[in-house]
Each structure stands twice: as structure tokens, then as C-alpha cells.
Nucleic acid binder design. Structure first.
Length: 564
RNA sequence: GUGCCAGUAGCUCAGCAGGAUAGAGCAACGGACUUCUAAUCCGUCGGUCGGGUGUUCGAAUCAUCUCUGGCACGCCA
């Protein structure tokens, strides 16, 4: 048994169900089918270690007030072979359970045994899941939306792995379609401006105005001169795109790597067009009657799919839209590659696309819930208490690269994973670089460094830690010790919840909580210099804390320093 | 206009398969280092959970109306 909570839940369920059965036998309660009970950790410690509201839930069926039901149940409880010490009826009818401390000591045994595997749960049962995130437009540098999506997606993938899913991390390269056309036109205009003079060539209004386009054109010109002048515009653009796009993609890859993100798959949109996959998906939809033709374009039949309106799949110029490519892409994920589940992380500005994509997969026999879209709200940067739009260094919109340079990878990843994806995020640049007590990154890292330093010092003084079997853990009974153990025991639960809710951010908050409990313990209890047996027990506790903190920091890919 | 997301302490945010007295960090104020890292800890202050109505034993949580902010409604992605 790896998860102490599962063990306890099972015990409590058995006890409660047994009591219902006993009451039914005696005739004090009618027969009630109990399939599951909700076990909670009460907010107040006075309310016991665990509680359940089952007596309130069944009050109608029991035909008596919840408190009365609860009292009947309590009188029939059989705690033999469980961690439970006693139970009480409280408030409107809660059943509060008080456990022997053994379960907490048991969880320390589990941590010591599992080491860096502690926290793993088998929620996913090996299900194949594809997590696609960032998938930035390769026509320019990564922005703050990509930064948040990157941190969230990467951590979500880690959480799901730890929760027993078979995870593939994927980046979808939008190397086809309209924006690539625009990219080519923009590059061409800048190139011609260099060759012919800036005033001779007008820059298209809807082109990419960024500095990086000029730099690409300049670099190409310096290498190759004016050889493109004699080419046709189509050829010129293609050559320039073929030149600049790989550079951009390489740059994106490098920036993401510096950010701690590596992918299993880089999937090119272009290959979907070239292989005929896009055409095949559209043909399939047409065969099944899911498309309509009007105004020389092919549309997805919105009415038939329960959508508000039709969506263009093929424009009247014969070019497929991103929507068509997206359908082919998800067909590839679900059918061609056989993923059971696909999770896409999109900026909230794409929310209109969610219902369409889910609906568009149904004709292929892919149920809506196999595609999950995590939307995240946009990011606002603050500097000196004011909205910061521009980079200090370049004077342009702040890119992920700028951010990494300004605050570093640890702070960036930590801050982007602090809030739930659905809430707007205000990123305080000053706080992120502050090396002080109000910076949560340092707070957690400091706890880890403190532990390592303590363990190091003990070793230097010749103290040899004992294996957990040889240690009397029952000596750990100070309030700070008990609360710290309790917190550590929750880790597998936290992984499960983070996976279920697709909110890796709760782990960031959890690790802060662990650090806080450790610091409290540290200030209340000494390790070094205590009586041998107590010292050994505390060393185990401290080491378990180290294991959990390190585990989470590795999971969210933040440095866990041994010295600070 | 329609739809989606958000509105909780001065600030940034948790809590939202309905549950017991609504939490944390920061800020403010007051304490704790002869002893394992004070980048820490302990305490105090701080709330009409945007507002109304409803559902029920019970609502920050569910329903509905309304106000405010963000976003989306394109042969862009």
C-alpha cells in the first residue's frame, strides 16, 4: 500500500458500512445502500483527523434526524484492525474520527521506502495521453501567453506522468497557412527594401512589423546578396520562408529548453497538408454529410453538429483553413496515433474554438470528452507597481527570452504555476527577483537548503542516520512534528487532485505549505544535540521533508539548492 | 447583441462533487537569534465572499436575475 489515505478511506468505509449493516440487522435503521462515502479532512483539528457527512446524506432514507442516525452508527462501530481510535458525533450530524498516530508514522515509512517515487499514484492506469502546449506561431518570438502556457503544460504533463498516465508532450508547429503567407510577404518586403531602398517598397499594412523580420531579411541579404531580385515573388517568398522559419523554430526550441521544457514530439502542420491528410479529413466529412458548399467555399455543417454557425474549412481560393488542419491534426492524434486522451492548452482568447473542435471530432467516432482543452487567462506584467508592456532592454514587447533574462527560470516557472489557469495572472517582476522573505521561490528553496545543510552538518559531526525500521518514530509527538508529518502524508493525494482537476498549480501552493510547516518545526524543535533516539526520529522526519520538497521542485523543474 | 471566464481581507490569490467559527501570503503593528542557515518563526489587526432572489436542515459553493472587468463571435489562428 503506497497511499496511506487510500488505506484509511478503505478502513473508514468498511467501518461505516459495517455499522449500517448492523443497524439494519437490529432493525434500528432501514436498509440503505452505501456505495461510497465522502471522507474529508476537517478544517479544525478539534473535529478529528477525518470526518464524513454520511449521516446527513442519508437522513431522508433513514427517516430520522442526522444526529440520531449518526449516534446509532457510532454505537455499532467496530474499529478492530484499523487506525481508528474513536469516533464522535458533532455539529449537525458529522461523524468525526480520531486516529491513533500510527498512521502518521506509517506514512514516514512509506516515504522512506519510496524515496523519489513517493507521490506516485495510479490514477491513469497507463492511459495514453497527449499534452499539447505552447504551439506558438513560428513567425516570431515567444510571448507571455506562451510562457504561461508552457509552464502550465509542462507541469501538467509531469503531474499526469506521476499520476500514472502515459504522457506524450507535443508542440504543434504552425508552419503552414495564412500566417506563413504573411510571414513570406513581410520578409520579401523587408528584403526588397534593403535591396532597392526603403522608400521604394511599401511594407504591407497587415504584415509582421517586428524587428526580427528586418533582421532575417538583412541576414539573408548579407549572405546571398540581391539574387532574389530576378526570382518570381512566389519563389522569393518561399526561399525567404525556408530560410527564416527553421531559424525561428530553432530559436523557439532553444528558448523553451532554457525554460526547462523539452518535447517528445514536434509536429509539423505542413506535413498534414503535404500528406493529403487534410484533404482526406474534409472528404470524409463531406461523404458523411457534415459539410456544405456555399459561396465557392466548403463549410463545416454547424447545425448538424449542434454548433451556432458553420465554419469555413476550405476557402474559395482552394486553401484549407486552420480549422481543417486542426481537425486533421486531432484525427492524427486520436485515430492515427491512438491517443486515448488529448489535452490542449490554449490561451483564453481561443475559447470560441473549443466547442467546434470537440464537435468536429464526433463524426470520426471520437467522443467529446476525449479532447480536453485547458484555457488559461492572459498575463499582465508589473514593474514598479505599474503595468509593464515593454522590455527594459529592447523596448519591445516582453518576450519569454526577456523574462528569463530578467527574473530567471525558477521564478518564471514558479510564478506561472502559482495561480489556477482560469484566473488572470499579475506577474510582479520586482518580487520575482527579490532575494527576500516575501519571494515564495526563495522561501521554498531555503527550506530545502536548510534541510540539506542540517543533514550535512550532522554527517560532518559523525552522526550516522539509522534506517527507519530501527528508529522509534513514536517520539515524534510535538504539535509541529505531527502537523508536518500530516502535511507530508498528503502528497499522493495532492498529485491525484492536481491530475483530476488539471491544475498543477496546486502543487506549487502545496510545496509552499510543506516549507511553511517545516520552518515552523525547525523553529520549535531541535535535531542536533537532542537525545539520541529523538534525534534519530527527527532526522527521519527532516529527511522525509527533503524528499517531498525535492520531489515537487523536480516535478515543476525548479532548482533545489543544497546551499543558499 | 450573443457566448465564455473572472469578481472572496488594503494588495495577490486559495477554498467552489453544498457542510461545522470563510483561509494563506504580502502590506501594517508587536515580539523571538549564546544553541542545527533570522532568506526563518510566533502573535495582533484586517471580510456585506460584487448585489438581489430562489433551491434546503445548511449556500462563497447550486439555479436565476443583475452590476463590473477581460475575452471571443473573420473565407485570421
Amino acid at each position: 500500500m503506497n497511499n496511506i489515505f487510500d488505506q484509511i478511506r478503505e478502513q473508514l468505509f468498511k467501518v461505516v458500512k459495517g455499522a449500517f449493516f448492523a443497524c439494519e440487522k437490529k432493525g434500528s435503521l432501514p436498509g440503505i445502500q452505501i456505495d461510497d462515502i465522502l471522507i474529508e479532512v476537517p478544517r479544525e483539528r478539534d473535529f478529528g483527523d477525518f470526518s464524513t457527512n454520511i449521516a446527513m446524506q442519508v437522513s431522508k432514507q433513514a427517516k430520522m434526524p442526522p444526529r440520531k442516525t449518526a449516534e446509532l452508527l457510532v454505537s455499532e462501530f467496530d474499529f478492530s484492525g484499523t487506525y481508528i481510535e474513536r469516533a464522535e458525533v458533532a455539529g449537525p450530524g458529522f461523524l468525526n474520527f480520531y486516529l491513533k498516530k500510527d498512521w502518521l508514522y506509517e506514512s514516514l515509512h512509506i516515504i522512506q521506502e519510496k524515496q523519489d517515487k513517493y507521490g506516485e499514484v495510479d490514477l491513469g492506469k497507463g492511459i495514453k495521453v497527449n499534452v499539447e502546449f505552447v504551439s506558438a506561431n513560428p513567425t516570431g518570438p515567444l510571448h507571455m501567453g506562451n510562457a504561461r502556457g508552457g509552464a502550465l503544460g509542462d507541469c501538467l504533463a509531469s503531474v499526469l506522468s506521476k499520476a500514472g498516465y502515459d504522457v506524450t508532450k507535443e508542440f504543434y508547429i504552425n508552419d503552414a497557412g495564412n500566417q506563413i503567407e504573411k510571414f513570406g510577404i513581410s520578409l520579401e518586403a523587408r528584403y526588397l527594401q534593403i535591396v532597392l531602398g526603403e522608400d521604394k517598397v511599401e511594407f504591407p499594412e497587415d504584415g509582421y512589423h517586428g524587428e526580427d523580420i528586418i533582421e532575417h531579411a538583412k541576414a539573408y541579404y548579407e549572405k546571398n546578396g540581391d539574387i532574389l531580385l530576378e526570382k518570381s515573388p512566389e519563389e522569393r517568398r518561399k526561399i525567404l520562408v525556408d530560410y527564416a522559419l527553421p531559424i525561428n523554430i530553432k530559436k523557439i526550441r532553444e528558448t523553451l529548453e532554457a525554460y526547462g521544457i523539452t518535447y517528445d514530439v514536434w509536429f509539423s502542420e505542413k506535413t498534414l497538408h503535404e500528406s493529403g491528410a487534410v484533404k482526406k479529413t474534409i472528404d470524409f466529412l463531406t461523404e458523411k454529410g457534415y459539410t456544405v458548399e456555399k459561396d465557392d467555399a466548403i463549410w463545416l455543417n454547424g447545425e448538424k453538429l449542434g454548433l451556432e454557425k458553420d465554419e469555413v474549412l476550405v476557402r474559395n481560393n482552394g486553401i484549407a483553413t486552420y480549422m481543417a488542419a486542426d481537425i486533421a491534426y486531432h484525427y492524427n492524434k486520436f485515430i492515427t496515433r491512438g491517443f486515448d486522451w488529448a489535452i490542449d492548452l490554449w490561451g483564453a482568447d481561443h475559447h470560441g474554438h473549443v466547442a467546434r473542435m470537440k464537435a468536429a471530432m464526433e463524426p470520426f467516432g471520437v467522443k467529446k470528452d476525449r479532447l480536453e482543452v485547458v484555457l488559461f487567462q492572459l498575463v499582465r506584467l508589473y514593474r514598479n507597481g505599474e503595468l509593464a508592456r515593454m522590455s527594459k532592454r529592447t523596448g519591445k514587447a516582453i518576450s519569454l527570452e526577456d523574462l528569463l533574462e530578467e527574473v530567471g527560470r525558477d521564478a518564471a516557472r514558479f510564478f506561472f504555476n502559482l495561480k489556477t489557469s482560469g484566473s488572470h495572472l499579475d506577474f510582479d517582476l520586482d518580487l520575482a527577483v527579490k532575494q527576500s522573505n516575501d519571494n515564495p521561490v526563495f522561501y521554498v528553496q531555503y527550506a530545502h537548503a536548510r534541510i540539506c545543510s542540517l543533514l550535512r552538518k550532522l554527517k560532518e559531526e559523525g552522526v550516522e542516520p539509522k534506517p527507519v525500521e530501527a528508529v522509534n518514530l513514536t517520539l515524534l509527538k510535538e504539535n509541529e512534528e505531527i502537523e508536518l508529518i500530516r502535511k507530508l502524508s498528503e502528497y499522493p493525494e495532492e498529485i491525484g487532485l492536481a491530475a483530476k482537476t488539471l491544475e498543477p498549480s496546486r502543487l506549487t501552493r502545496y510545496v509552499m505549505d510543506v516549507a511553511a510547516h517545516f520552518h515552523s518545526f525547525y523553529n520549535a524543535c531541535r535535531v542536533k544535540g537532542e537525545d539520541e533516539d529523538l534525534m534519530m526520529a527527527r532526522i527521519i522526519l527532516v529527511d522525509c521533508t527533503r524528499i517531498v520538497i525535492k520531489n515537487i521542485l523536480e516535478l515543476i523543474k525548479i532548482d533545489a539548492p543544497e546551499k543558499m
